[in-house]
């Protein structure tokens, strides 16, 4: 049987394989190579060693964007997960219309980042106008604006994952805890949360990586105003590539650093939360 299948290899694997080479492998390898080169187009690439990386690390705007992004990822992680968890708990109770509420809370998730950014820009500027200021005048307005925006966008998504997790907790475990005299608070901390650890792992992982990779919303809400102070890492990399001629190599070096950072965070985070999961 294997032999028969193998003869069909070109039909089954080749289309995806070729597209994958073209759309991922080549750009990825070329990206690593170019991060060690100075270039404006690929044909004039000259090897320069690690000088791009040094330039990238010495770039104060890039360093600022790093801390700005870290802070953003941590706060958005907390806000999104706490609220989504609470909502999931509330919407799995016996209430009228829980399905409609789930539908409503999930909806913003389907709207694209660019569109979301402009929707909220109108609202924030409308509010700030009353105080004679605007979103583009203070980096922290942009920061909290983005927090509100991504919370609005992602709470529904995380809520769905938490609801799926809550519904998979076997009823007898909860009953046993109740019979043993555990109160609501104890049941939450000693039964629900440990049993929910797989969902919590996934949601935390998703919200941290989403926070780090945030681009569209950042571009449309503030575009880095005032003077690049609300620029997050992804936007900073984009602006280095396309906003400064001669800096393409540095942009690529930043992108490699960014890639390493995202992978590192993913691995660390999965490890630390996985170790807290209980066997089911």
């Amino acid at each position: 049987m294997e032999k028969a299948i193998k003869r069909y290899m070109p039909i089954f694997v080749l289309p995806t394989f070729c597209a994958f080479i073209l759309g991922f492998i080549i750009p990825f390898l070329m990206g690593i190579w170019l991060s060690f080169c100075k270039f404006t187009t690929v044909t004039d690439a000259k090897f320069v060693g690690i000088s791009n990386y040094i330039d990238a690390l010495n770039d104060t705007v890039f360093r600022h964007s790093f801390w700005y992004t870290v802070l953003f990822a941590i706060i958005s992680l907390l806000v999104i997960n706490v609220l989504a968890f609470a909502l999931a708990m509330a919407l799995t109770q016996k209430l009228r219309g829980t399905n409609i509420f789930r539908t409503i809370f999930f909806m913003p998730n389907l709207i694209g980042g660019i569109v979301l950014g402009y929707i909220w820009q109108l609202i924030f500027n409308g509010i700030l106008e009353k105080y004679q200021t605007a979103l583009g005048l203070n980096e922290w307005y942009g920061f909290w604006g983005l927090i509100i925006l991504v919370s609005w966008q992602q709470i529904g998504y995380m809520m769905i994952i938490y609801i799926a997790g809550l519904q998979s907790i076997p009823g007898d475990v909860m009953e046993a805890a109740q019979i043993d005299g555990a109160n609501r608070w104890q049941r939450l901390w000693k039964v629900t949360i440990p049993m929910m650890m797989p969902s919590i792992t996934i949601c935390m992982f998703l919200s941290v990586t989403n926070g780090f990779k945030l681009f569209d919303q950042n571009l449309s809400l503030t575009a880095g105003e005032p003077s690049k102070m609300s620029e997050m890492m992804a936007l900073n990399i984009f602006n280095t590539f396309y906003g400064r001629t001669g800096w393409e190599g540095v942009g690529q070096a930043k992108a490699v650093l960014f890639f390493i950072l995202v992978v590192l965070i993913g691995v660390l985070q999965l490890r630390s939360t996985r170790s807290k999961e209980v066997q089911q």
């Binding site: 694997v13 394989f17 994958f20 073209l22 759309g23 991922f24 492998i25 080549i26 750009p27 990825f28 070329m30 990206g31 170019l34 187009t41 690929v42 990586t209 780090f212 990779k213 681009f215 890492m233 992804a234 990399i237 984009f238 590539f241 393409e248 942009g251 690529q252 992108a255 490699v256 960014f258 890639f259 995202v262 992978v263 993913g266």
Partner: peptide, 23 residues
């Protein structure tokens, strides 16, 4: 191929955006 596919899931788009547009 499977491992490469899993790996590609964690790579942020910024890593390949410039070279992908060249390709």
């Amino acid at each position: 191929l499977y491992l490469l596919c899993v790996f590609s899931m964690v790579v942020p788009f910024q890593m390949v955006m410039f070279t992908l547009s060249l390709v």
